[in-house]
Amino acid sequence: MAVLLDTAALPRADREEAFYAAMMSASVPARVEHETPSGEVHARMDFWLLGTPDLFRNEGTGIRLVRTPKHVRIGAPERLALAVQVIGTGRFDQAGREQRVRTGELMLVDLTAPYDFAWRGAGASQAFQIDYADLGLSVETIRAAAPRLRSSPLYDLVLHHLTVMPTVADALQGTESAAQLGEATTSLVRALLTSAADHRDSAPAMADVLFARITWYARNHLTDPGLTPARVAAEHNISLRYLYKLFAKHQLSFEQWLITERLAGARRQLTSTPHRPIASIAAQWGFLDPAHFTRRFRRAYGITPQEYRRRG
């Protein structure tokens, strides 16, 4: 976690300017208005980088953020934000649609278009910000989903996920799992929007969420020798046949995917622990036969584990 701003450490006269600078570094250009008199601004902003997407939390005294057409013309990355109001009640207006966002509710913000968002008194909001390119959905789908988020059977799941994300993201900062958390959350958001845009058929979206959950689970148990297809299926209350079907939908074999992930983990450790025996690393990642590990490694990367370690 990076603390972008904590006004408690600043002179009162500098807080508004510092707030504006921190807000613009974390999100897109907008006009900032404070409810409290000059100098009485209180705020804390936290930021977590999760690969390409990020998580941004702002808590403090009443504010209003107005993104005008002029701000849009200035340019900014093409992103959207799925935000949860964690303290207080927000008022959000975009594309002629105004809504009250109460504590524990989600709102979808198109950061490429004008909007008006505010809360009075003490409040806090945390937003998962993601590039349109990574989300892979059309503008029409996103606009259709925005007013119908609650119609999705995934609404409560995604709401809980975003609410607890700061604690999880803190624990994963500095690890490869942070980017994996970003990828998994992206899949959840994609499924939420797809199912909300056309809530009559949410089965494909639910399958995408299940696939994301399974790959997240497997990546966190890669060094467990008991990680088998049968165990993964049982942990997610599905049949072994359906597990294979989910992976086939993504043009993958579960076993080959697992081997690829374990090889990648072993490859990273070859250079991060240069004095540890290669056979020991191979065994940790599920390759009990060193010769088999060497053959698999060479097939995947074109060189032997020893050559890879020598090259650094």
Rank of each mutant, 00 (worst) to 15 (best):
L4S: 07
L10C: 04
R12L: 08
S27M: 08
A30H: 04
E33C: 13
H34N: 15
P37E: 07
E40G: 03
E40A: 09
G51H: 00
G51D: 00
R57V: 05
N58W: 07
G62V: 10
A83E: 05
T89K: 06
F92A: 03
R97D: 09
R100N: 06
V101G: 05
T112R: 03
W119L: 10
R120W: 11
G121C: 12
F128W: 02
F128D: 04
D134M: 04
G136S: 07
L137I: 04
V139T: 15
R143N: 15
A145E: 00
S152Y: 11
V158P: 00
T163S: 09
A171C: 11
L172R: 10
L172N: 02
E183F: 00
L193T: 00
S195D: 02
S195V: 07
H199L: 10
A203Q: 14
M206G: 03
F211V: 13
N220L: 14
L222E: 06
P229I: 13
R231L: 15
V232I: 15
A234T: 14
L243N: 10
L243M: 07
Y244R: 06
K245C: 08
I259L: 08
E261D: 11
R262K: 14
Q269Y: 01
T271A: 02
R276L: 12
I281L: 12
A291G: 12
F293D: 14
R295K: 08
Y301V: 03
